[in-house]
C-alpha cells in the first residue's frame, strides 16, 4: 500500500501480515498479506463477511492466535516497536496495558466465578502499581464511567447478576482498565439486543475519544461503521480489498464487493433496488479461486480477474484491490 510518508509514526502498523494454519493437506492461508495503519485516537472499522479473516487479524495483533494458527509473514509494529515476534511474557505485558480487547459475547467474556470487582482489580493491579484499595477505587471509577448505576453495590456482584448490555459495559471497563492506546473490539455488539447496540457503540466511541484511545472496530454492521469509524477496511477471503476514509468508502464504494456490502445499509439518496446483489458465498480457504478471490461472484469480472490477483493500489483517497482500476489514471478514481 503506497502511503505517503507520515510526519508522525502511526500507533499501529500492520505490514503484509500473513496467518496460516498447517493442515494435513497443506497450509491454509487465512490472512493473506494484510497491511494497514491506525493513527493514535483513530477508529478503524473492519468489515467483511464471516470468515474473511477479521478476527484472526485482531488476534494476531494482540498475540492471541490459537494454535495451530500462526503468523507466517509480515510484521506488526506498535508505536515503533515490533511486537509480532515478542516472547510470550513480553507480549503479555502489552496485552491489557497497551492493547486492550473486547470480544463478541459479553455473556461469556467474564469469569462466572468471580465478582466483577475482583476481575477489575486483578486487571488493574496486573498493570498498574496500585494497592488493593486504590485499585478498587479505580475499579469503581471505571464502572461509573461506563455507566453502571449504583456502582458501589454492583462492584461486588457476579457476572450472572448483570444483563447482557451491562456486562458488555463491564467488559469495556475491563478493556480500558489500564488505559491502553489501542482497543481491538471484535464485533462488540453482535451478541446484544438491537436496542442496546447503539448505546454500547456510543459509549465505546465516547470513552475512546476522551482517552485518546484508538480502536480497531470489527463489525458486520455497515451502519455502525458509517457512524463510528474514521476509516474503514473491507476484507474478503483474507485480504483487504478496499481501505480508506469512511465517507469515501461508504458513499463511493469502488470495489464491487464493497458496493455489494453497502447494499446492506439503506442510505439517503441511494436507490436500493439498483444495488448489485452479491450472489454466492465467500470461498473456503482451501478453494480460493485463481486471480481475484471475488471473481466468481463479481458481475464485472473480466479475463484478467480470473488469472491474476489484483494488488491493493491507491485510487484517489482510498486504496482498492480490483482490476477495474488498473485502467489509465484518467479513468481511475471514478466509481464504475
Amino acid at each position: 500500500m503506497a502511503v505517503p510518508a507520515l510526519a508522525n509514526e502511526p500507533l499501529l502498523r500492520v505490514e503484509d501480515l500473513r496467518v496460516e494454519f498447517p493442515t494435513r493437506r497443506g497450509r491454509l492461508t487465512a490472512v493473506d498479506g494484510v497491511s494497514f495503519e491506525i493513527a493514535p485516537g483513530e477508529v478503524l472499522g473492519v468489515v467483511g463477511e464471516s470468515g474473511a479473516g477479521k478476527s484472526l487479524t485482531g488476534a494476531a495483533i494482540i498475540g492471541l492466535l490459537e494454535p495451530p494458527g500462526k503468523i507466517t509473514g509480515g510484521q506488526i509494529v506498535l508505536e515503533g516497536q515490533r511486537i509480532d515476534n515478542l516472547p510470550y511474557h513480553e507480549m503479555r505485558q502489552i496485552r491489557g496495558r497497551r492493547i486492550g480487547a473486547i470480544f463478541q459475547d459479553p455473556l461469556t467474556s467474564l469469569n462466572p466465578l468471580y465478582t466483577i470487582g475482583r476481575q477489575l482489580t486483578e486487571t488493574i493491579r496486573t498493570h498498574l502499581p496500585l494497592g488493593e484499595t486504590a485499585a478498587r477505587e479505580r475499579a469503581l471509577a471505571l464502572l461509573r464511567a461506563v455507566g453502571i448505576p449504583a456502582a458501589e453495590q454492583r462492584i461486588d456482584q457476579y457476572p450472572h447478576q448483570f444483563s447482557g448490555g451491562m456486562r458488555q459495559r463491564v467488559v469495556i471497563a475491563l478493556a480500558l482498565a489500564a488505559e491502553p492506546r489501542l482497543i481491538i473490539a471484535d464485533e462488540p455488539t453482535t451478541a446484544l439486543d438491537v436496542s442496546i447496540q447503539a448505546q454500547i457503540i456510543a459509549l465505546l466511541k465516547r470513552l475512546c475519544r476522551e482517552h485518546g484511545t484508538a480502536v480497531m472496530l470489527v463489525t458486520h454492521d455497515m451502519g455502525v461503521i458509517a457512524e463510528t469509524a474514521d476509516r474503514v477496511a473491507v476484507m474478503y477471503a483474507g485480504r483487504i480489498v478496499e481501505i480508506g476514509p469512511v465517507r469515501e468508502v461508504v458513499r463511493h464504494a469502488r470495489h464491487p464487493y464493497t458496493v455489494g456490502l453497502m447494499g446492506s445499509i439503506p442510505l439517503v439518496g441511494r436507490d436500493v433496488a439498483r444495488l448489485a446483489q452479491i450472489d454466492g458465498a465467500m470461498p473456503r480457504l482451501n478453494a480460493i479461486p485463481l486471480g481475484c478471490a471475488f471473481n466468481p461472484r463479481c458481475q464485472k469480472a473480466f479475463d484478467i480477474c480470473r488469472t491474476q490477483r489484483p494488488d491493493l493500489r491507491r485510487v484517489g483517497p482510498v486504496a482498492v484491490a480490483c482490476h477495474l482500476f488498473d485502467m489509465p489514471p484518467a479513468d481511475a478514481g471514478r466509481p464504475p
Binding site: I62, S109, P112, H127
Partner: peptide
C-alpha cells in the same frame, strides 16, 4: 471466552491457569 479475555487483559499465566481455569 473468559479465558481468552483473561489473557487479553494481560493476566499472568499463573492467574489464568489456576485462579481462572482450574477454579472453573
Amino acid at each position: 471466552d473468559y479465558i481468552k479475555f483473561a489473557r487479553a487483559r494481560g493476566l499472568s499465566n499463573r492467574a489464568v491457569h489456576f485462579s481462572h481455569a482450574l477454579r472453573n
